[in-house]
């Protein structure tokens, strides 16, 4: 987890189920509150699995930051994870990019 200007970049790894999601929810929210940062990049390059707990983590942060005028992006989702993000419609709410560099370039 690192801060770049007004953006918090979270590089996740492993399987994003209820165990990891509960842990990350607390870590991310604490960091957002303490830093006052309003933009969030969730890097899923090393995430191999996601279920509705992981989707809940993303949508929860989306709602929170949207209410504060901030933005959230997803980066690097591989096919199994990408499939679930599309199936659930999360991709319609949260813009998805191939790399962190792609967001910097826009």
């Amino acid at each position: 987890m690192r801060q770049v200007g007004n953006t918090l970049v979270v590089r996740m790894g492993g399987e994003l189920d209820m165990l990891l999601s509960d842990y990350l929810r607390e870590e991310i929210d604490t960091r957002l509150e303490q830093s006052g940062v309003r933009n969030l990049i969730l890097n899923l390059e090393k995430v191999s699995f996601i279920d509705s707990s992981g989707l809940g983590l993303i949508i929860g942060r989306y709602k929170k930051l949207k209410a504060l005028g901030g933005k959230i992006f997803i980066v690097g989702a591989h096919p199994p994870v990408d499939k679930i993000l599309h199936f659930s419609g999360v991709n319609k709410l949260v813009p998805m990019y191939n790399s962190e560099q792609d967001i910097i370039n826009i």
Partner: peptide
């Protein structure tokens, strides 16, 4: 539908799909 605010309520939808 989800009774928990942090969840997305997709569980049964995934199972059914």
């Amino acid at each position: 539908y989800s009774s928990e605010p942090g969840r997305m309520g997709m569980g049964f939808t995934f199972m059914r799909s």
